[in-house]
Amino acid sequence: MAGKTTLNNLPSGSFALVTEVLAEGLIRRRLLDLGLVPGTRVEVVRRSPAGDPTAFNIRGAIIALRKEVAGQVLVSPLGDEAAG
């Protein structure tokens, strides 16, 4: 397993486990409500053609987050074998 990084640094098609949400206040609440609690598996689905935001598969829904927001979610990347 690779070291910790943030959600916005992952390439499209990769998977990761949420380890911590760094955001505070309302953004934090929103992210939690979307299901980004520690232990959640997230798939990076695609990036907007303009480069930002990025769409993630979070608990079965495709949610787009801007990089400033995704950058406040700590994750540990999963290898491909864990993806299936």
Binding site: A23, A64, V69
Partner: peptide, 10 residues
């Protein structure tokens, strides 16, 4: 500041 943006793509 631009506020946080979350958009569901149904």
């Amino acid at each position: 500041e631009p506020s946080s943006f979350t958009l569901e793509m149904p």
